[in-house]
Amino acid sequence: MANTETTLKECLASIEGATGAALVDYTSGMALGTLGGSKTFDLNVAAAGNTDVVRAKMRTMEHLGLKGGIEDILITLTDQYHLIRLITGRGGNGLFLYLVLDSKRANLAMARHQLKKIEEELEV
């Protein structure tokens, strides 16, 4: 059992190289909680923008007739990884966890595994 704040704290504390995390509602584009980030990296803006990424992928999958759901989406920048992990809650609202990693310090396989575990503990 975990609430938003503890979940985000756990993301930053337990995942090596994590510099920011957000829990985002992808229909409204609102960040329900953010932690980390910096003056030059506004997690609220990133949250709203990445809802378009999730929506575009979902639409493409529907066009292709793919039945599976999205587990996570990885975006690789030259010096960062952005990891999006989708959550399907009972409330019927689509949420995702958004994680920013420093690619020099992060272990990608480990980060994905840990993010999956954190998502399973988050009860929404």
């Binding site: 609430n3 329900l32 809650g89 609202n93 988050l122």
Partner: peptide
């Protein structure tokens, strides 16, 4: 209902 679920529902309903 868990505190986490209540908080998320309340944030959503409030906004």
């Amino acid at each position: 209902i868990t505190p986490g679920a209540l908080e998320l529902a309340q944030v959503g309903a409030l906004h």
